[in-house]
Every structure is written in C-alpha cells, then in structure tokens.
Amino acid sequence: MYYLGLDLGSLSCDAVLIDEQGDIVAAAVVPTGARNLEAIERAKAEVLSAAGIGADAVRATVSTGYGRDRVADRLAAVTEITCHARGILALRADTRVLIDIGGQDSKVIRIDSQGRVEDFAMNDKCAAGTGRFLEAMARALQVDIEQLSDLDHGAMQNITLSSMCTVFAESEVVSLIADGTAVNEIVKGLNRSIASRTASLVKRVCPDLNGYPVAMSGGVAHNNGVVRALGEVLQCEVTVPDRPDAIGALGAALIARDKSR
C-alpha cells in the first residue's frame, strides 16, 4: 500500500507518495493558483500517474499547509510545522534546527533527536522575506525568480535594504536601480535582508546554535544566494535536502503511514 502527503501552500501544492518503507515513490509540485481544489487534484493525479497506481492503492492521506482543511478524504490535517519536522527527520536525521521559508510565511523549528517539535517560531502576518517577497523583487529587477539564485555572485559591497516591507523594499530596489547600483549588489542586499530577518526567528527558538545542525526546506531553499546569506549570518553550514519544497508533503505522507499502523 501507499501513503499520500499533500501540502497545499499559498504558491504551490506539493504531493508526495511513499511506500510502506517510507521511500518516495513519486512527488509533484504544481502551482496553487486561484482554485486550490483543482491544484490538489492535479498534484494527486500527477503522483498517481508517475507511480502507475490507482487512487485505491493509497491507504491514507494526510494534508498540511494553509489549505489543509480543503483536502477531502484525508486521514488527518496536520500543521506544516509538525510535517516539516517529520519530513526532515527522514532525510537528515541529525537536523536540530529547520528553517522553512515558503510562499507566504517563514518558520524556524527546533527538533529533538526523535523528530519531535521542541519549539517553533513563525513570521508575523506580513510576507516579508518569503517567496512572495522574492517574487516581487525579481519582478522589480526584471529577472526570473530562478535567476535570482546566483545573481549575487561577485558582489563586493554590503548594501542594506532598510525596509523589509515588500511594497517599500520594492520601491527601494527601484531606487537602487535608478542610482545605477549593480544587480548583483542589490540581490546580495536582498539575500542579507532575508537572512537577518530569518536569523532573528532562529534566535527566538535557539538563542545559541552551539553546533546544532541546521537545515532548510521550502521553496526559497532553492535560492542558493539566500542559503549562503543565512550561513554567513548564522555562522554555520545550512544544508538543503533534495526537493526542499516537498519536505512538508513528505512529512505528511510519513505521518499518514505512522497513523495507519
């Protein structure tokens, strides 16, 4: 039998299908768009098709993400915090601090050696420093969001963006462009802003990292520049597992399996 984890986020809907051993059989990430029920069905259909199985082979589904209650026929709805902790335990069991930056929120989770959540912190209501923030900045810089990842290469200055409000930061970026500031310098400044904001969340749940292994999940973990900036600010190595955007869905699938036993 198989177990399905569905993570319905603000930007993407992620699905992970695992087998009885907990190995990933298939995974899919589709844009959530305006109709999240359709996104759920698309993500589900993609993993079932990739695995070559029918829906009846799925023994249990656990949903997570902000739209977790929208998923029908679920065994349970579990928060992203618990799911991300469970997911990272399966991939990097030594992780004690997990930074998850998704489409509209960022979280820092402290995890014990059994994968249990010991403490967590989330950003406030605004989306500063999240995927939405980066999308807006990429738009202002007229580059694709994927390109942002390594655009900071070669930057020598330490430009500071004074505002983390997405609207004000965007106008600040426009001003820097108008002043002739190089794009790589601006991108590095953006990455450092996100990193310092995230670092304050890290300090809330883990005032002294003290060699704790730190990992990162969520769509923003694909951005190498942000990961590098985080490592510099936190003065530690920040590891990124494969498919960091699917960690929540993987955790949900594993919880579905655990609850079914």
Partner: peptide, 13 residues
C-alpha cells in the same frame, strides 16, 4: 483565525 496554525502546531507539539 490567522493564529490558527500556531495554536494547532503548539497543541501537536
């Protein structure tokens, strides 16, 4: 309502 995820995660913890 906006705090729901925090509350649920705290209870799960």
């Amino acid at each position: 309502g906006q705090q729901r995820t925090r509350i649920e995660a705290f209870i799960e913890m």
